[in-house]
Design a protein around this nucleic acid. Structure first.
Lengths: 333, 333
DNA sequence: CGGACTAATGTAACCGTTTACATGTTATTT
DNA sequence: AAATAACATGTAAACGGTTACATTAGTCCG
């Protein structure tokens, strides 16, 4: 494998000139440039980026900490993140933590040992939930909530949830079930807040029994729905905190002979690709996953470069999408 | 940031001893080991992996070339791949090509410039389809077909398709539509081969009109289904080459008032998570995505280390899963 | 007791770049 | 014509580890 010295020798110039020809061509005469390019072509030289990175003390890589890459919302986000990273000359190291702290720490070590320059954190974190990332390492939280500290990209979960519940209320629903995420999940907390606000403003009392806990998987949505089926007085609408659980729940409801939306309305959150193709298609909140991925990368790069951020956190707008899984409450028109 | 020399000075030993204490502790006396560990703790030393990798001329990273990370089959595969990579001390560089050759080449350059040690290729390739990866760089094709050359992990697409079509035939179907991938996609070619074989063995003539071309997206499945709806004599079953297209197709069929499976059976391929929750749940072929991811990583590591492979290609078994989207052909029982 | 061997450690070269600084050449200014 | 600036290039010192080789001290054995 040829190195920069081979090229220099063959071109009849110094290594410095070769190096400059590659990274600062404007500082090199056209004549030298030619000689260098010919020599490079002749020996099939490829600069050793490992050496370059070592010298510049930069990995030109970022790790993305994601609870589960198989989750379609995350994969959409990561696709956009990676796209932007590639444009900027950075690599993306995949850090699927499977939700474990152990794994997360292993990946954080990667940046402590210089194999990556920073972290995009997709685990929603708040001041309460433990944060394993030391304060001195560049990081942006791309799935933040209202209590997230440090650089963050997020949506207004509370407002989005409130919009959705307001809509259900406007359709005449008064008993609105919730399929929540795990109780301590920051997103679940924010969204539940929005739910409560909407109820309060409509003068509907909050009932704890109407909250079923899930874990954002279809399977948990499927289970949660049974809780509603078995109630003496069933809710007429269910607000699920993500699309997967909503899809799982609809499965249960249909199996129990409950028609959607005639007997019960169901709503989701995220607007994953399948939401449009579920039966019935799902009324949901669309998160700008791609926009978030791009911004997270841009923001992280600024932190890495030490540039000041124009704003500590960036709250992106969501879109409210009405499809066929929601309708007037039974008995109303 | 402290380096190995700082540690050596503080511990009162040489840099060589520190280096050995970290990578070959058995070559160092207990006494020195202690001194080194204390010094490391005292200055908070973290070895600079960039330097280590540079010296060892290894990136300890592999790139995974994937046409689209948002495709659930791929993300499942990658999750497993990454898991294994992490175990073996390797990082996974995400290389979402979006199907473009340009992108693919940019990522291949990453290994030519030593930023990665090898490639896992998820784009199905055959001798015919262009292969941009130079023969000297370690690579395993993890989505191979019958004509894939070089180290490969794959399933027997032809046999799996044949099993599926045989099943449909056994239910009395004689007009069986196909939603294919792009004509030149190696998977589509293999699977179509299986389809033809099954028909031939049952004495059913092959009709070109029954083949609708899609591109593995739900949207294309949705479109393809119209082609069948508009036929004078509709097929009574549709064999889709992946689950997404099947789900899209079912959407169209249901909208046209065609009942599944009473009027028309629909089958998929891949067994993505949503296949179980679609309406009706989808009869499909399950690919061992996780197993494939693990094996691909193991295989690539062998190629990188220069170990001989016990077998050039590894063909993994698929599972045939019957759900509710298939039933007897109309009129049969 | 001396030679051979082993274990622990140190010294310094090396990996392939980048870049500060020095040098030489040519153009521009006074 | 001398002084100065601008440009192109070369020399060599980093960067932070690893490791071949040299050195020293201690052990074993005939």
């Amino acid at each position: 494998m040829s190195n920069i010295r081979d090229v220099a020798r063959l071109a009849g110039v110094s290594v410095a000139t070769v190096s400059r020809a590659l990274s600062n061509p404007e500082k090199v005469s056209d004549e030298s440039l030619d000689k260098v390019h010919n020599a490079i072509a002749q020996v099939g030289y490829r600069p050793n980026m490992l050496a370059r990175n070592f010298r510049s003390a930069r990995a030109y890589a970022v790790v993305v900490l994601v609870p589960d890459i198989a989750n379609p919302f995350y994969s959409l986000f990561i696709r956009a993140l990676e796209d932007r990273a590639q444009q900027k000359g950075y690599a993306v190291l995949l850090g699927d933590t499977r939700g474990t702290t152990e794994r997360e720490i292993e990946y954080i070590r990667r940046v402590e040992t210089r194999l990556a320059d920073g972290i995009v954190q997709l685990r929603p974190s708040s001041e309460k939930s433990q944060n394993n990332i030391p304060p001195d390492i560049p990081c942006v939280n791309a799935c933040g909530c209202e209590y997230t500290t440090g650089p963050a990209i997020r949506i207004d979960n509370r407002a989005a949830a409130k919009t959705m519940v307001n809509y259900l209320i406007s359709l005449g629903h008064r008993r609105i079930g919730v399929i929540s995420g795990l109780k301590d999940n920051p997103h679940a907390i924010d969204r539940l807040e929005g739910y409560k606000e909407a109820l309060a403003e409509a003068g509907i009392p909050y009932e704890k029994d109407l909250i079923a806990e899930g874990d954002f998987t279809m399977w948990s949505g499927l289970n949660a729905a049974f809780q509603f089926c078995n109630m003496k007085v069933r809710p007429t609408a269910v607000f699920s905190m993500n699309d997967e659980m909503a899809i799982g729940a609809m499965q249960t409801l249909k199996n129990q002979g409950i028609r959607i939306p005639e007997d019960m309305s169901v709503t989701g959150f995220d607007d994953i690709a399948y939401a449009k193709y579920s039966d019935p298609s799902l009324t949901t909140i669309s998160q700008p996953a791609e926009e978030m991925g791009k911004m997270a990368m841009d923001m992280l790069l600024k932190v890495i470069e030490g540039e000041p951020l124009s704003q500590r956190e960036c709250v992106l707008p969501t879109e409210f999408i009405i499809r066929k899984s929601t309708g007037p409450a039974p008995g109303k028109k």
